[in-house]
């Protein structure tokens, strides 16, 4: 029996990976239900390793490349790619992004209109990352829970974990050296006038925005990156900036309803890459930062390697050879 503290995104993905390898798993979480137990409920749910490369290390692509297929077996994944646009004044941002990323092609006004008719004539240039995808984080968490339960995993909500567990996935609640919170604020809008079908990133020198469709005219917009441990609700300033950026993307957002706003803390290590640490007999997976959905599957495979090293199947071996294990930031503490 493998015990896991924390039934958030990281805990659930690890549980599923362990169950698939034949282990028995029990998860403990002090939160009340799958969605409230995970800070991932505030996530965009973008599976966008090539875009993220703009500011992230190469490992994010290496570790994230398999995430789209992994999630497709768990929940509905929308494979429509990512559209990146910028207002004419900020064209230099587009040039910079294009130079620093791969996996994209240049778009003209006609291409943008063909991809997203609602954005026709609003932007004259863009980039298209055709292989990227997105999912609905809250639906994905619930689907994960269902799969974990179907495979016999035991989920204990509103329950403190025992003092000693095999795996700790408690995010900011874990007392790990150098772990820090990076606050993110987001909003969910209902704008039935628009039918945008893919993740759209609006580049801006000060306030970059991403918009992820949730279906039925619902859109998630985000997200700020603030070095802070505050969990207070989003500030007026952050919301003003995000909402006006959404308005820049399309004026129809002026009439959108703000369904929800939220703020959460992303756990991060100094290099903003996730780590697997071993401390006093417990394995810790933490520091998924803004790449939870993207990197959790690859990290969970490595966690499973640590916890049940004797089990080795084809998939397992593939991960070890193809997944960039040498560069994998697995470190030991203590």
């Amino acid at each position: 029996m493998i015990t896991i503290a924390g039934a958030g995104l990281a805990g659930l993905v690890c549980a599923l990976e362990l169950l698939r390898r034949g282990a028995a798993v029990t998860l403990y979480d002090t939160g009340p239900d799958p969605v409230q137990s995970s800070v991932a409920r505030f996530a965009g749910g973008m599976l966008a390793p090539w875009c993220e490369r703009e500011s992230a290390e190469q490992q994010v692509i290496t570790l994230g490349a398999s995430a789209i297929n992994w999630w497709s077996e768990v929940t509905a994944v929308t494979r429509h790619g990512t559209l990146v646009v910028a207002p004419a004044r900020d064209r230099a941002e587009l040039t910079r992004l294009a130079r620093r990323t791969t996996g994209h092609r240049q778009l003209g006004a006609g291409d943008i209109a063909a991809l997203e008719p609602d954005l026709a004539s609003r932007f004259s240039e863009g980039l298209f990352f055709a292989d990227e995808a997105h999912l609905d984080p809250r639906k994905a968490l619930c689907d994960l829970v269902r799969m974990v339960r179907d495979l016999g995993g035991d989920l204990c909500y509103a329950t403190r974990a025992p003092d000693r567990v095999d795996l700790d996935c408690t995010g900011m609640a874990a007392d790990l050296p150098h772990l820090r919170p990076v606050r993110g604020e987001m909003a969910i809008l209902h704008c039935p006038e628009l039918a945008i079908g893919r993740t759209v990133r609006l580049l801006h020198p000060r306030i970059p925005l991403y918009l992820v469709p949730r279906g039925d005219g619902v859109y998630m917009i985000g997200a700020t990156m603030i070095e802070s441990s505050s969990t207070r609700p989003p500030t007026v300033r952050s919301l003003c900036e995000m909402l006006s950026a959404a308005f820049t993307l399309h004026p129809a957002f002026a009439e959108a309803s703000v369904i929800e706003t939220g703020a959460g803390l992303r756990p991060a290590f100094p290099d903003n890459l996730p780590r697997i640490l071993k401390q006093d007999g417990t394995v810790y997976l933490n520091g998924l930062y803004r790449h939870g959905f993207l990197l959790a599957p690859a990290m969970a495979a490595r966690v499973a390697d640590c916890l049940i090293p004797e089990i080795s199947n084809e998939h397992h071996r593939e991960c070890r050879t193809a997944g960039g294990c040498q560069r994998n930031p697995v470190r030991s503490a203590g």
């Binding site: 820090r180 603030i226 505050s230």
Partner: peptide
């Protein structure tokens, strides 16, 4: 941290305003 080191600078500026408005970001 690596950039500060590479620059050899003796003085760094830090912004108080947004990042530490709530007295946090201690790790940073």
């Amino acid at each position: 941290a690596a950039a500060i080191d590479a620059s050899g600078c003796d003085v760094v500026t830090v912004s108080l305003r947004r990042e530490t408005a709530d007295g946090s970001g201690a790790g940073f």
